[in-house]
């Protein structure tokens, strides 16, 4: 990886698949909930030749959105997708275009929040043995994966081809009964993602528990074996499930 297209894909994954997790993080992690409770700030990320997204914090709620916010309090500009990716790897700095007075907030308040996200998404040691950590990690990883599938289906040639063969309708990925539930909405190869239960899914991938979901998402389990042993139940339109699994493999390669 490293081509212009790969950088663009990574930038989209970072802004649209990874960053959206902050919505859930401030709800799931009590420390982060307390930290962001009184924030009233909107951060716009704009990448030249790449994605645009914003994060709005208000009344203890974080909202992630694609595109341009009407009135952000901070505007961060990146000269290229590569620049954004380098910043997220800790190897570059953004160019602030608005909100110079908030730069201290960014480094002292926002970056620890981003660091907390990395703490959950890249667990070290035996953290996954903790039940609550496992739950948060699984929810965030699942959301990341599904949003990333949508991005790859839009940008990456092989994933585009696979998505085009998934058929139209809804694929729901779920860990019943408590969740999470996430739905991929497919329409002629275009993929969008919603959190929560969906009506009338055409295909369902049902995990027996959070541990099984976590193992599959992190490629620690043979999915065929898990299906045969009843740890993962599949229902409905199999090409949708098959091609989803194939794109998921490619997501892992990009996010690794």
């Amino acid at each position: 990886m490293g081509s212009e297209l790969d950088e663009r894909i990574r930038a989209n994954l970072n802004l649209y698949a990874v960053l959206q997790n902050l919505e859930d993080l401030v709800q799931l992690d009590s420390e982060m909930a307390a930290k962001t409770k009184n924030w009233d700030v909107t951060i716009q990320f704009s990448v030249n030749g790449g994605p645009r997204a914003y994060l709005a914090f208000k009344n203890g709620v974080c909202t992630h959105g694609r595109g341009r916010h009407e009135n952000p309090s901070v505007k961060l500009f990146f000269t290229s997708p590569k620049h954004l990716n380098a910043m997220l790897d800790g190897k570059a700095r953004p160019i602030p275009l608005k909100g110079f007075t908030k730069l201290g907030f960014l480094s002292k308040e926002f970056m620890p929040l981003a660091g907390r996200l990395a703490y959950y998404l890249k667990p070290e040691g035996g953290l996954l043995e903790d039940e609550n950590f496992l739950k948060i990690n699984t929810i965030l990883t699942l959301h990341t994966a599904l949003f990333a599938v949508g991005e790859l289906a839009a940008l990456e040639p092989v994933s585009k081809h696979l998505a085009a063969h998934m058929g139209d309708g809804i694929l729901q990925v779920e860990v019943p009964p408590e969740g999470p539930y996430v739905a991929l909405h497919l329409d002629h190869g275009a993929v969008s993602v919603t959190k929560g239960k969906a009506d009338n899914p055409k295909a369902r991938m049902i995990f027996k528990n959070l541990k099984v979901a976590n193992d599959l998402l992190n490629d620690r389990v043979d999915s065929f074996r898990a299906v045969a042993q009843g740890d993962i139940a599949l229902k409905g339109h199999v090409p949708m499930l098959d091609n989803f699994d194939l794109i998921l493999d490619r997501v892992r390669a990009y996010l690794s």
């Binding site: 065929f224 045969a228 229902k235 199999v238």
Partner: peptide
Amino acid sequence: IPCGIYGHYSPAPFIPVD
């Protein structure tokens, strides 16, 4: 055995597997 049972004999498309 990889997958337990591989290829077209794989249990996976026989839904519900049980």
